[in-house]
Design a protein around this nucleic acid. Sequence first.
DNA 1: ACTTTGACTTCGG
DNA 2: TCCGAAGCCAAAG
Length: 108
Amino acid sequence: MPLQSSIIATIRRIPRGKVSTYGAVARASGYPGAARQVVAALRKSVNLPWQRVLGAGGAIKLRGESGFEQRFRLEAEGVTFRGRKVDMKAHEYKFPKKSRALKKKART
DNA sequence: ACTTTGACTTCGG
DNA sequence: TCCGAAGCCAAAG
């Protein structure tokens, strides 16, 4: 699965009222350290719950109007903030780690 | 093939 | 808590 597609699929799994971070999404997609590619995917794709993806520690990394909009949208979903950051303790979404149940034998 | 570009992250001071 | 430097990775130009 192409990196960008995996990332997008991962982001779509974040439930309403929950949030995650760039780094976490990258890891959950199988590409630790690819936080910046998460950004690239978010920018190119449309119709994603982009407001649920934050920076490390729950910080909004968007500047200007976009930042306000993101915060507004999150609050509308019931997400609470601690100062400038999202209250991760209460809203961070943990992706299921390794669901290995369906391992099918790949043939070359 | 090389350089630039990001809504990043982590570590020190 | 804030700031800068260094590390990180893939897509675009």
